[in-house]
Design a protein around this nucleic acid. Structure first.
Lengths: 226, 226
DNA sequence: TGAACATTTCATTCCAGGATGAAGTATGTG
DNA sequence: CACATACTTCATCCTGGAATGAAATGTTCA
């Protein structure tokens, strides 16, 4: 019966620890069970149990990254519901404050062989927003517009598509908690940007520096200021 | 702390008997404690207790008429929250027959302050199909064509765009399971249609009625028969 | 006025489900 | 390989709050 389903979903949300965790996720980022336990004021075991229930109910989804498990909303409707609920509490201007503080030197870096950090996330989001790529089943596919764009950028997408390595896919960024671009496309993009001196690798570290030339070209290309 | 308030409101809603009563009230009518006890499957004493708590939290209001006490939503935000919650339940084909089976209610009604139900969904789809609006990142943006169209319709879009409230966005309709139009634009559209007597609010309910005048004008405007 | 009905209040019982400590699994690191 | 970290699972305890019967408060109507 539908009414029972509504009751069970409402019951899931109507629990102090769980609603606090859901609220923390309102910033759209993904957090680990331990971090969410902290904001909810419960032990990691409890948090794990609560999160498990919400995943089961398809309120949250989880993506495994090594020994970390990042939780985030499974669908946009969840955010709508939390927002509507928060509108019920007497006048307040609750600001959403990220659970983790930003780490400056992780601003821009490499992840294996592609761009990570905030720059990686922004580039990824722009490529999607401009519909050069579209997400399909945990993979990014290139659109016709995207093919033209990448060709103009000087990338031979044909040879990339022949490789058995995935062409393009989202990879959850551990400092930004949002996905950046991974796959063979991401690799050649970084290679190309270094070749063109848009970015430079710092020493032997994974830190990246964006050159002034890179900044202006990225602005022209994607309309973003990095 | 504000977070605690959110938790307590969510806790109120997240109880089987209470959410069932809240759901029954979605038709905008007022019901007595005994009636609501019936739909929730609890005793009148229990219902009274639950209703008392929700009145205290300003979710419901009560109006005394003789020996009867009629409960209804205290504010439109409550309906909005329940609707958002109901969007979370895993939906197969479902039928909503709470207490009344008024077709008009599902057919055409208000959601918060804009048109919902089938009429809301159809209007939304036509505005998109005719490219007066385009979706971009969970928001609708007005096209040049759309600006002309809305101006002719008698809407001052400039002042709407200055507001901090979102101009236009999709809002999933719980009965149609497709988005209808929300945001400040949707609000003034409804206001305008009521002012022009294209639609009428049924007294004390969220049901809307479309007038013959409204039907013919909507056909001219959007090419749809509602 | 009193009987019937609608609703609430109170005191008490009772249990679903959250909290917790300990142990188990998987991953990364030196 | 050993050890630390991140997270989950399991068994157990425990409590907040829902349900209930009885009784009080109010209202209508004959």
């Amino acid at each position: 019966m539908e009414l029972e389903n509504l009751a069970s979903v409402a019951g899931l949300i109507g629990e102090p620890a769980r609603i606090k965790m859901l609220w923390a996720l309102m910033d759209g980022k993904a957090y680990t069970a331990t971090e969410l336990a902290l904001v909810a004021g419960v032990s990691p075991q409890s948090a794990s149990m609560h999160l498990g229930k919400m995943v089961l109910a398809d309120l949250l989804k989880v993506s495994n990254q090594g020994r970390h498990r990042y939780f985030s909303y499974a669908r946009p409707e969840v955010a709508y519901a939390i927002e509507a609920l928060s509108n019920l509490v007497p006048h307040q201007k609750q600001e959403i404050v990220p659970v983790t503080k930003d780490i400056p030197f992780e601003y821009c870096r490499t992840c294996y062989d592609h761009i990570a950090g905030r720059a990686g996330v922004i580039i990824n989001e722009r490529l999607l927003a401009m519909e050069y790529l579209i997400e399909k089943d945990q993979r990014y596919e290139m659109t016709a517009k995207g093919e033209v764009f990448l060709k103009n950028f000087g990338i031979d997408t044909d040879s990339l598509l022949k490789q058995k390595r995935p062409f393009a896919r989202p990879c959850l960024d551990w400092s930004e908690r949002r996905p950046h671009l991974a796959g063979s496309l991401a690799m050649v993009i970084l290679k190309k940007m270094i070749a063109e001196d848009w970015m430079r690798k710092i020493h032997d570290s994974r830190t990246l520096m964006i050159t002034a030339k890179g900044q202006s070209n990225l602005y022209d290309l994607l309309g973003v200021k990095i």
